[in-house]
């Protein structure tokens, strides 16, 4: 079965990719399977300078999910270009580089540097990280800020630009509309939901950052609802994410209106999960009566 999808000018051999932050820069997972099998590789967020991130504990398990507050730890955009991107050149899989920052200027600077790299085929800007003090989620919760940021970043980004939306808003459609009007080529949704877990023994938050981003199957219904809402107002490509761990989940995201999907938390439980999902997707599509991905697109729930 042909699984090819087109995402705002970016062609993927299948609609499945790991999500940013759950896959490092690909190296570790390449020990388990051939990264050429993936639809795309979304690498860990880059910032202008290196960041150490938050103190530990940075993760906690919750029912059907987990909280994380890594804090955008990364070696900085220059080190990523020098030390991490060369490794990814050996694969034909398109690399989507994720960009984060504290200031608008930082997003612009980092995007410009990454978009200039041949191995990078698209940019995803993270305007929705809930785990840093400055920037991140602020840009993703105010439509005016989201518009300005997207507009400025797009000016330096000749490659497809995806904007990763935060679910921590009253109405995600206004943010989606703002970034579309500002020139985004696609949307990634959803990032994590801000959550908290308290340890009964210490009577303190279990995550050192106090709050963390909730991911995993627990947030899947919210992602489905938000993608469905946004799909009703836009034709932009949507990369759907939020708790995907089975091929049934993928079809549900496609039916809600996503064009491709990203798998996050499930990579921690099963490092082979993306490879398994790619192998199993055609069979599951047939099981539900679909002969192609386009047929699923045609069946998008209205």
């Amino acid at each position: 079965m042909n699984l090819t999808v087109n995402l705002g000018g970016l062609t993927l051999q299948n609609p499945i990719m790991p999500s940013s932050g759950c896959f490092g820069f690909g190296r570790e997972f390449s020990e388990f399977y051939d990264l050429n099998e993936l639809g795309a590789i979304v690498i860990k967020a880059a910032t202008g300078d290196k960041r150490f991130g938050n103190t530990t504990p940075r993760v906690a398990e919750t029912p059907s999910g987990m909280l994380n507050a890594i804090g955008l730890q990364n070696p900085g955009v220059d080190q990523i270009i020098e030390k991490e991107l060369p490794f990814l050149q050996q694969f034909h899989t398109p690399v989507i580089a994720n960009v984060a920052g504290s200031q608008l200027e930082e997003y612009v600077e980092v995007t410009e540097k990454l978009a200039a790299q041949q191995v990078v085929k698209a940019i995803e800007i993270n305007i929705s990280c809930p785990n840093v003090q400055e920037g991140g989620i602020q840009f993703g919760t105010d439509p005016t800020l989201a518009y300005d940021l997207t507009e400025q970043v797009k000016k330096v980004c000749p490659k497809p630009l995806f904007v990763k939306l935060s679910p921590n808003v009253t109405d995600i459609t206004t943010i989606a509309q703002a970034v579309e009007e500002a020139g985004a080529d696609g949307l990634s949704m959803i990032n994590t939901l801000t959550g908290m877990k308290i340890d009964l023994h210490t009577q303190q938050p279990l995550i050192a950052n106090e709050t963390g981003g909730l991911s995993g199957p627990a947030i899947k219904p919210i992602a489905i609802r938000m993608i469905h809402q946004v799909r009703s107002q836009t034709t932009l490509p949507i990369i759907g994410m939020g708790g995907i761990s089975t091929t049934e989940d993928i079809i549900e995201f496609l039916l809600a209106g996503a064009n491709a999907v990203a798998v996050g938390t499930a990579n921690f439980q099963n490092p082979f999960v993306c490879q398994n999902l790619i192998d199993e997707l055609p069979e599951t599509l047939e099981k539900y009566g679909f002969q192609s991905l386009d047929e699923v697109k045609g069946a998008v729930t209205s």
């Binding site: 759950c22 570790e28 530990t56 993760v59 730890q73």
Partner: peptide, 24 residues
């Protein structure tokens, strides 16, 4: 010992400051 995510070095959950080039 530390709370871990992936266990293989990809998620940066179990990081500690260190005296090396990377600082961790």
């Amino acid at each position: 010992e530390e709370r871990m995510g992936c266990g293989i070095g990809a998620c940066f959950a179990c990081v500690r400051e260190a005296h090396n080039d990377k600082g961790y």
